[in-house]
Design a protein around this nucleic acid. Structure first.
Lengths: 333, 333
DNA sequence: ACACTTTCTGTAAGTGCTTACATCGACAAT
DNA sequence: ATTGTCGATGTAAGCACTTACAGAAAGTGT
């Protein structure tokens, strides 16, 4: 059942059918109605490929993220997908893993699909100064199609980023720990992404403000699963630590488990703050004080930028939001 | 840069270029090499739409799930997407929500994309006897393209399901609770999906085996977020309860929080078992005994079935796995 | 040297749609 | 009656590929 069949059945030309499909004002309401009826009766659906060939676009948006099974990314993907569809776009998804080459391949592959826009999720696509190899292929991609980065920052033409001001947000959170009287605050991180570095920078700034000297022993690198974090801390956590700022909730939960095992009371002797406000935070005991990193807000910003762009208007290349500190049981404030 | 340009530059016809792209044995190695070189130099990529038009397929697989931000589904999507790509397929994703009409629309929409196979994730697509309205459109879809259902069961031609034998798995778990000496075991559930009914059936079977009479007060319906579950249980949990079987980990964690708030010791006075073995399970204290519902195993089965089918061989319409009980701190066994 | 394969390459006809341009009828203005 | 205008429809040329079929080149056997 193709456009010719419909044209024949409706007694019009294929051009008219095509116009009806696209709801062109060039067709009279009368013929529109007639053609539509024939289409419904034969449940005709235009062939996407032919359509794409003619139009050069298929109304799809590509999403690339390192790993959808990560809660933050899953939330973002879910939100984006839902909203895209409301505007008539479908999404094609590609999980790239975290290796440079795989990410590059993922982006290259998804570009071949003639997408109308590319969304990247996660700070692993970020670039500090703006000139690491990882950013190159994104800039390359941006030559073909607008690129939107959620929770990451890449400078360049046709690249639009929305991110949480992790530095400032972290700084404020650490300030609160200091106000509680904590002096030996551990910075617990896993990877060395842009986002992690921003957080570290905010952490150091808060210490500096309070006149607390830096201490390299307090920059603690751990593996990224709950059990390993616990083990790593049990093995080498400096004894004087009275506060832990973790770059994500999983690490924070690991820290909490470490405290329990080490017999350290939380929050009496040790305060813990997580990041991302995932479901893990309200799952543990005491519930974890965490930072809402505004996943959906960032998605919304990128989405709005995209719509603006598609309507021929200007979009904002870089937007910051601030995270919100959610006070719960692992801190005293 | 299209096939004509490459043909001209390489001094061959477009047919030859096309054959090189498709690695046809009809082209001599010599010309293949020459054409490939030209393609690389100009980084030529065949147009997907034209390709799709000619071939009638674009090597993409559709995935429909109610909600990717659910941990189980996210895990499945991640696994599938990764594996599809290994076999040269891309994935297009659609989150359907849990409403019947939305699910129907999602499936209809994704079918228009000329996908090569359709994957459905989640038991909300399931059908007990095989004849609820929800199954109709899936059967309709199966006329166009093979359908694979992960953790759900729909009978029909060209539909291939893989699911965890929730009934038997639940039955075994409840048996263990009984062996522990529990007599008043609460069945804590949220929705009324096929999967939930299977679990209930297993629960009842275990009770029957042990000669424990059914008690409707012990079939407890709660809302599906941690805080609400806790509230619901605080409000109306029968006092004699000494065991809780929850249909997912979130509910189980809610139950754990309830116990803590009600001053009931776990596992001394109350045992709790969850389902899905999500990260939540190892996050709480004591860690949650849970059932691994074999997400990736089920995905693997469907994937294998698909590959078999694409190679023209027969696939298994219905495969069961058994879940694995992971004993942790919320039970005494 | 000839016929006959075999191997490789080219020609051209799809594939189903969009859209610039042409056409046609109706109606208004002259 | 004649020209002009405008709205509705049709014609045909893309769009970038695949592939059946034709044909040329090369190799084989006699």
């Amino acid at each position: 059942m193709n456009i010719y069949d419909i044209a024949e059945l409706a007694g019009v030309s294929i051009a008219t059918v095509s116009r009806v499909v696209n709801d062109s004002p060039l067709v009279s309401e009368k013929t529109k109605a007639r053609v539509r009826k024939v289409m419904e009766e034969n449940n005709y659906v235009p062939n996407v490929f032919a359509r794409g060939l003619g139009l050069g676009t298929m109304k799809t948006i590509g999403i690339v993220c390192p790993d959808v099974s990560d809660a933050y990314m899953a939330k973002a993907v879910a939100y984006l997908e839902k909203n895209f569809r409301e505007y008539g776009y479908d999404s094609i998804l590609q999980c790239s893993g975290r290796e440079y080459e795989d990410m590059r391949a993922a982006v290259a592959n998804i570009l071949n699909k003639k997408i109308d826009a590319l969304f990247l999720i996660g700070s692993c696509y970020s670039v500090e100064g703006g000139d690491t190899p990882a950013a190159d292929y994104v800039r390359e991609a941006a030559k073909q199609v607008p690129v939107f980065v959620i929770n990451g920052s890449i400078s360049g033409d046709n690249i639009y980023c929305a991110l949480c001001d992790d530095r400032e947000t972290t700084c404020q959170a650490v300030r609160e720990l200091i106000r509680e009287g904590r002096r030996n605050i551990l910075f617990l991180h896993h990877s060395d992404t842009y986002s992690a570095r921003q957080k570290r920078s905010g952490y150091l700034a808060a210490l500096a403000e309070a006149g607390i000297p830096e201490n390299d022993n307090l920059l603690f690198h751990a593996r990224d699963d709950i059990e390993s974090v616990k083990q790593d801390l049990l093995a080498q956590c400096p004894t004087e630590v009275d506060g832990i700022f973790a770059t994500n909730d999983r690490l924070a939960v690991g820290a909490l488990k470490f405290a329990r095992e080490a017999g350290i009371r939380v929050p009496e002797e040790l305060s813990i703050i997580g990041y991302d406000n995932s479901e893990l935070a309200i799952c543990c005991q005491p519930e974890l004080t965490s930072i809402d990193s505004m996943c959906e807000t960032l998605c919304r910003i990128c989405l709005d930028n995209m719509l603006r762009l598609l309507r021929g208007r200007k979009a904002e290349p870089l937007t910051y939001t601030k995270g919100a500190l959610l006070r719960r049981g692992t801190t005293r404030f």
